[in-house]
Design a protein around this nucleic acid. Structure first.
Length: 499
RNA sequence: GGCGCGUUGACGGAACGGUUACGUAGAGGUCUGCAAAACCUUGUAAAUGGGUUCGACUCCCAUACGUGCCUCCA
């Protein structure tokens, strides 16, 4: 089965093929780094990591850009539209630059903890200001922009297919809007490409607005005074400004990957605004399709409700670890749900995933305790041998991770009650490699062999048991337990496991 | 107010117009030096009400509940 993906653009599940050659140009909307990422944020990156791994397993090479939004993303419910980074800086008594660096680094570290493959390009919005200004320039030249007091806006009416991607009914939305619109905007859906720093303010992050982008006379008043209610600064200075949030993704994606991407991924919440705007500004500038496939992950709820600051339910990786869960336990938890389904996080559910991973690790440890059997061409272990391919097929079916986990359970179930000498070492090893390759669970890395000394103890304990020297055998068992090893006594002999 | 999505057993969660999903947890039993594991058995899931069909968890309609978006929010 070839790879099929559900494409938001066509609303269908389609066979995937990159536009040209074998390289997949992939763009993933990254985080805004004004705070720690919570479990909901991470779930998206786990799903897109699975996409990358599936592409690689299908012999594609992947050229991937992920942005880090470190400027321009405005907070909600604020008519003055404060920048999240600037707000975070005030909260912590730092500059916006410090805040962005701190949480940006935490994001990179978190990716490693979750065993996520690093994108080829991780780009910060602040490092692509010239490219973003170029895009504004191009849009202005083509007549897609207009300027009002607080910035340069994209005129959605000039882009007739604006509402198509999300299936929006713009008139109905405008009629039912809850918040007063910016009176100067021509349409409610118009969005800022470039915002001017409000008059009298000094932002941590701001750049000079190139003169040719600013409509003449808008900020230079004849009498030298700035216009009433204007955000523009005094007459003699060039207006300072910063990019609108949507602009960065288009600018970075196109300047690195070219005008047309193969796949663009992001959260389901981005469909009506952010991705709609990306498409509009990108295609207006380039004249070609921005991305051939769009993939969207559904949201994770926590204890049945939306993750929100006020509920303090946005658990971080650190919170999970303090409660005794590895990031990989969380990774397995996320994979239990399909990326397009809404899922629910509870610690009870996370415990289920943790126990499942623990059981899997002990299956993985069997490879240290068995050997290739000479007569391995028996009828046994049929699904063990078929499992690596079945696993890939499950993921090729629109990243069906829940089915992939079932396949693993069924393959592992063949070891139940089987003599350890009947387990085919290389067959098990190949399956483990495939699991780690596709699902990033690090089963091999997290299951080291025990030491020679510990192996000796296992043998000694077995001898003591055969001599019915229970005191000695229990003593050895306790000693092993101190090192995190336990023994299962089976009819076929002892098997060690991690506690 | 407008537009959309969802509702599967204790919990999580798939597939499928007719066959045990699977996992985690629970109960009973077998086995066992003890323990653990393993093995066997077990609970009679599809929000509610209609409809289509030989047959629906699966298709259609309605209701209830939950939830998302409509702002430069995400």
């Amino acid at each position: 089965m070839t790879l099929q993906l559900h494409n938001t653009l066509t609303k269908k599940t389609e066979v995937f093929a990159p536009k040209s050659d074998n390289t997949v140009k992939l763009y993933t909307c990254g985080p805004t780094v004004y705070d720690y990422l919570h479990v909901g944020n991470w779930s998206a990156y786990i799903y897109w990591d699975t996409l990358v791994r599936t592409l690689i397993a299908n012999d594609f090479s992947v050229d991937r850009v992920m942005n880090i939004t470190d400027v321009g993303h405005l907070v909600s419910d604020a008519d003055d539209g404060e920048d999240k980074l600037e707000k975070g800086a005030r909260r912590e008594g730092k500059t916006a630059w410090d805040v962005a660096t701190f949480y940006g680094n935490d994001f990179i570290t978190g990716m490693k903890r979750l065993n996520l493959i690093a994108p080829e390009h991780i780009t910060k919005a602040t490092e692509y200001i010239p490219q973003q200004l170029d895009l504004v320039r191009k849009l202005k030249e083509k007549g897609f922009t207009y300027q009002i007091d607080d910035g340069i806006y994209f005129d959605t009416a000039k882009f007739p297919t604006y509402a198509d991607f999300a299936g929006l009914d713009l008139d109905a939305q405008q009629a039912g809007a809850r918040v007063a619109l910016n009176e100067q905007k021509r349409h409610a859906a118009d969005f800022a490409l470039w915002k001017f720093t409000p008059a009298g303010e000094k932002r941590d992050m701001e750049w000079e607005t190139p003169a040719e982008l600013v409509e003449d006379g808008r900020w230079k008043m004849e009498d030298g005074e700035r216009r009433a209610n204007s955000h523009l600064p005094d007459s003699n200075s060039q207006p300072m400004g910063f990019p609108g949030w949507h602009l960065e993704c288009s600018a970075m994606a196109m300047s690195i990957l070219g005008n047309t991407l193969d796949i663009h991924t992001g959260g389901i919440d981005h469909i009506p605004v952010h991705h709609t705007n990306e498409i509009a500004q990108s295609e207006a500038a380039s004249g070609v399709t921005f991305s051939n496939y769009w993939l969207h992950n559904n949201h994770l709820k926590v204890e049945g409700t939306k993750i929100s600051k006020s509920l303090s339910n946005g658990y971080t990786l650190d919170t999970l670890e303090k409660r005794g869960y590895s990031p990989l336990d969380y990774r397995l938890f996320v994979l239990q749900s399909h990326y397009r389904s809404e899922s629910n996080f509870t610690f009870e559910n996370l415990t289920g995933a943790k126990n499942r991973r623990h059981n899997w690790r002990n299956i993985a440890a069997l490879r240290h305790q068995t050997h290739d059997t000479l007569t391995d061409d028996s009828q046994k272990e049929i699904s063990l041998r078929a499992a690596p391919q079945a696993l890939l097929e499950a993921l090729n079916d629109d990243l069906n991770t829940p089915r992939a986990l079932t396949i693993i359970d069924q393959a592992f179930a063949e070891f139940d009650g089987v003599s350890i000498t009947d387990i085919h070492q290389s067959g098990l090893g190949q399956l483990l490699e495939q699991i780690d390759k596709l699902l990033g669970l690090a089963l091999i890395e997290s299951t080291p062999d025990i030491t020679d000394g510990q192996k000796q103890l296992v043998v000694q304990r077995q001898r003591a048991r055969e001599d019915k020297n229970w005191t000695e055998s229990d003593r050895i068992r306790d000693e092993l337990a101190k090192n995190g090893i336990t023994i299962r006594d089976t009819v076929h002999g002892p098997i060690w496991e991690y506690i």
